[in-house]
Simulated assay, not measured.
Amino acid sequence: MKTKHLIITVTLSTFALTAYGCDTSNKKTKSNDLALLQKVEEPSKSTEPKNNTVKIALLLDTSNSMDGLINQAKAQLWDVVNKFTHAKCGNDTRPELQIALYQYGNDELSYREGYVQQVLNFTSDLDEISEKLFSLTTNGGEEYCGAVIQQSLKQLDWGKNPDNLKMIFIAGNEPFDQGKLNYKDATTNAKEKEVIVNTIFCGDYQQGIQTKWKEGAILSGGDYMAIDHNEKMVHISTPYDDLIIQLNTKLNTTYIGYGNLGRSKKEKQHTQDMNAELLEEVVVVKRAVSKSSRLYNNKSWDLVDASNEADFDIESVEKEHLPNELKAKSNKEIETYLDQKRMERVEIQKEINALNQKREAYIAEKTHEETGELENALFSAIVKQAAKKNYKWE
């Protein structure tokens, strides 16, 4: 049978590679002075680096038959992010989420590289992840699973922190043992790096077993799943969708671009809103919820997020790198302006999250679940494999 409509539990279990867990030491944080920000899950000014990171590499087959898989990845990215918002370590801190992206099996990719390409290195930039997913196109080719796994192990910085949860998700529909590089060697290398390989066969469950997809997962302690990658997900519209979309537009006005990245990144933010809308209106809603979470942080180009960092000093920002509306202001006036934008953002995010709770309750009354095939496969494996890392969900 397939892994269709898996029920996501709140218990995380089985990481077979190590008995380490989330770093349980207490982290000292310097909270924002604004009392309003204490009432929501806003970013605090941390004086110490965060040790707990979930690293996920998505290896997607982009051969001719995989259009459905790519469309599911585009639409369901925000569902996965929204669920990760509720992940918590044993010391009640929140883990960071980083995602990398590879494509393989596409004729337009280099033969010398085994038709494998790194599309995106590990990043927590959600707009960048969305942009790269939308850049993917399909074209027939040879699907070498061993090669793409090995490339991701060599090229990505998986780190040596035993507290980190490190996972590969490889999805495709051709035999797992194709190509010169033996998939057994690649999965053995993954196990040595404490990286779990989870395999997602796009097709019949038994066919995936026969073509080595299950074996490829077992060798590293991962999970094997099968999905219908061509299934069209039925979304339920709610009375709250339009309100959330309107608030999303207001939310964008609280971002103050600065530096060399400011203008292009703000444009990218808008573009990814538009890309979500091209899929379906409900995807815009889910993206707006993600943008109202702790995982949507744009400190590299947004002055509001940047000012939440402990080492941020407005005096270090050169005037020419500020937006026009701030260039003539004093540092004190700029700080006041940023505080106002921060409070405005928090209020909008609170409204979006409150409406989303009503939205989810409305959906629950109409159906038992509103989840997609790829999302189920990703998250069912994640929740199953993280308990021994001391993660929990709330």
Rank of each mutant, 00 (worst) to 15 (best):
K341A: 12
K88L: 10
F15D: 09
V40S: 06
Q117K: 15
V317C: 03
K28Y: 08
A190M: 02
P43E: 04
A387L: 13
A354D: 10
L165H: 09
V148G: 05
A386Q: 12
R263C: 04
T211M: 08
E309D: 05
A73F: 04
E315V: 03
N189D: 11
T188V: 11
Y255R: 06
V81P: 04
N71L: 06
D157A: 15
L36G: 14
D273G: 03
V234M: 12
N189V: 03
I8P: 07
L338V: 03
C145S: 12
Y183V: 11
I348Q: 01
T138I: 07
G221H: 09
S300I: 05
L251D: 10
K212I: 00
Q385N: 15
E277I: 15
V119P: 02
G21N: 01
K193E: 14
Q117Y: 03
N26A: 14
S220V: 08
Q210P: 00
D107A: 13
V10F: 04
G140F: 00
E113C: 08
G203D: 06
N230V: 11
I382T: 02
A57V: 02
N324G: 06
L374T: 01
V148I: 12
D241C: 11
F122R: 09
L165G: 08
A100C: 06
A100Y: 03
T253D: 08
D302R: 00
T85V: 05
Q357M: 01
